[in-house]
Amino acid sequence: MAGTLVALGLRAIKHVPKNAPLRSAAAMSSYTRTLIGKREIVGFGFNGEPSYIDRADYPMPAIRWKEPNADIQALREKEKGDWKNLSVEEKKALYRASFCQTFAEFKAPTGEWKSVLGISLMFVSVALWAFYGLKAFVYSPLPDSFKPENRAAQLRRYIDLHANPVQGLASKWDYEKDDWKK
């Protein structure tokens, strides 16, 4: 029984109908109709989805921006004639029927970088105040070895130990004159 079921399942996987893409396209179109309404599908777009997006790298979207209405239909009839007879307003209306934003509009700077920079600097200032607060109230003072005289004593000790005599500290120290080499 289970074997039969498995076999039937595998057979179903193997025998994918040849017209599967067509069928899914038909199913998609009824669903996309609810999304895009009466908008005309005019192209492939950037990925084959019937969606509208203004992109500079794919300048021609897959659908027109506006659903056709009486005004646009009238304009489309006029569009079939000589384009010299179209007024500037009609030309702009035709453009706006097909496209949402012009290149100048969708590439216009938004000024968002200012808020990004401002908010980042606010976080930086909070971090700095936190650091100084911790330094003032939480951490104990630095150990004695950070004091200048202690650090000078430690340097003297390294010199006396001939530390790093080839290229480092001791190689720069003149032991006969007891001073740095000039």
């Binding site: 300048p59 021609m60 384009w83 453009y95 029927a97 097909s98 496209f99 290149f103």
Partner: peptide, 19 residues
């Protein structure tokens, strides 16, 4: 664009060229 009577396409093309 003229043959398919799509004026908007022609203007969009010029804009895209400029970009």
């Amino acid at each position: 664009c003229r043959r398919v009577n799509d004026f908007a396409l022609a203007v969009r093309l010029l804009e895209a060229v400029k970009d």
